[in-house]
Design a protein around this nucleic acid. Structure first.
Length: 420
RNA sequence: GUGGGUGUAGCUCAGUCGGCAGAGCACCGGGUUGUGGCCCCGGUUGUCGAGGGUUCAAUCCCCUUCACUCACCCCA
């Protein structure tokens, strides 16, 4: 048997109802907030990701599906969506005439990591980006939008964490101070942190190894190093979250892995997904559009882990199944042909009807109807053919009425529609 | 990339200290020659994850490999 690729998965029909539900809730909400959908390709030139995500990140260094196409050009299966959305924004000059654009997209991403709970090599994200808004109000609005989505999906046990990463004006100073501490304490840091100290010192702050945390209890807080502009920005985000009554925590350890983030960084975290605590990650990236060759326009965005969100949502919303409106049980060939006709006509008119095509006993057809959850069964056999009228059984209260063949489909249509 | 756990029927899992492969659920049929759920009776289902080795004999022991799973790393 040929099995699917490691870390990939099928989303089966039983799960799809939930996925569609989430997708609808998310897109309705996003559109109410002024976002428009954009669809972008799943592959891009490798260079796009290398330049936007950062050469030294784990994603670019070892997690991307990169290969040469037939002409030898390096292309990559997208590991995230932001880079592509920014590319599209620039390429189609969407900033002209109005730099403000709110875009969202839903689709699969690919990273070649070792799979585990809540982590797949092909996974789905709901991604939203806002370009051209420098105001911190948009930061607060996006976080508010997310918590609203979560509550609409009946997801609790999640917390919004926020932090500020500063900007090119103030981060270097902080980085220098941090490096100083790290160098002093190098011998007390774990191996990973020693490596990180050089490559990406900010990441040392969210190390979970107890000895590292202990060694660094007195590291400087980035929040104390923020320049006046960043400080005001962050405080406005906080106060507006309070205004909107969005519960959130300041998390000084929150550092996003991708190079392009500036100022506000946020995550929505849960304790219900094993080691994968982040369900949403996002933040501001004021320099990215310019870095990718566009005008100097600020941006902010987030990515929701769809698989993780679905996992959480399924706990409060188990098993939504689609049931047929009607099952037609037919006995004998002539009756079966009648049923066949009716099923097709009903389907065309918007009613989901089911039938058995293998000419089984009435008992087994009734059993099948029951299993499918059909609330009504139309029975047609030799007697009914003689009388030219079929029996409609209500499976809940077991009552049966007789319906003449003449005008049957119309009649069923009105009966079943009035049931809702 | 590193480490732990698990692979037996469609599903959940027993089992054999090496000797013909099991249960529950599900499915199919019957009890009711044309009426579902509950009940009763009967039936189908397996390369015992794959390959190799040891053995008279391997699902069981050994090696290899693949997959799943959890954790580290990292992230959604």
């Amino acid at each position: 048997m040929i099995q699917l690729i490691r870390g990939f998965k099928d989303i089966l029909p039983e799960e799809i109802m939930l996925w569609q539900h989430i997708e609808i809730q998310a897109s309705v909400l996003l559109e109410n907030f002024g976002f428009r959908e954009i669809r972008i390709p799943v592959m891009e030139r490798t260079e796009l990701f290398a330049r936007s995500i950062g050469e030294d990140t784990d994603i670019v260094e070892k997690e991307m599906y990169t290969f040469p196409d037939r002409k030898g050009e390096l292309i990559t299966l997208r590991p995230e969506a932001t880079a592509s959305v920014v590319r599209a924004y620039i390429q189609h000059r969407m900033y002209n005439p109005d730099p403000v654009q709110k875009l969202y997209t839903i689709g699969p991403m690919f990273r070649r990591e070792r799979p585990q709970k809540g982590r797949y090599r092909q996974f789905y994200q709901i991604d939203a980006e806002v370009f051209g808004v420098e105001s911190p109000l948009i930061d607060a609005q996006m976080i508010h939008m997310l918590t609203t989505l979560f509550s609409r999906l009946n997801i609790t046990d999640c917390t919004a964490h926020i932090n500020s990463l500063g900007c090119p004006a103030c981060r270097p100073e902080f980085k220098a101070a941090l490096m100083q501490k790290l160098t002093d304490r190098m011998d007390r840091l774990c191996e990973d942190c020693q490596r990180r100290s050089v490559k990406n010192p900010l990441r040392v702050m969210d190390c979970k190894v107890p000895s590292c945390r202990e060694a660094l209890t007195d590291i400087p807080s980035l929040l104390n190093y923020l320049c006046p502009d960043c400080k005001i920005h962050f405080e406005t985000v906080r106060s507006q979250l309070d205004t909107l009554q969005v519960k959130h925590e300041i998390d000084r350890h929150l550092v996003r892995g991708l190079d392009y983030y500036t100022r506000t960084a946020f995550e929505i975290q849960t304790g219900l997904l094993g080691a994968q605590s982040a369900v949403v990650g996002g933040g501001r990236y004021d320099g990215l559009v310019k870095a990718l060759g566009g005008p100097d326009i600020p941006g902010i965005g987030f990515a929701i882990g769809f698989d993780r969100l679905a996992e959480l949502a399924s706990r409060s919303m188990p098993g939504i199944a689609k049931k047929p409106n009607l099952f037609i049980a037919a006995l004998g060939n002539a009756a079966q042909l009648k049923a066949f006709e009716w099923v097709s006509q009903l389907a065309v008119s918007g009613i989901q009807a089911e039938m058995d095509m293998s000419n089984r006993s009435l008992k087994s057809q009734m059993r099948q109807a029951d299993r499918l959850g059909s609330s009504r069964v139309l029975i047609v056999g030799e007697q009914e053919l003689e009388n030219q009228s079929a029996i409609l059984r209500d499976m809940t209260d077991k009552t049966q009425i007789s319906l003449p063949f003449e005008g049957l489909v119309e009649k069923l249509h009105s009966i079943l529609n009035s049931l809702g």
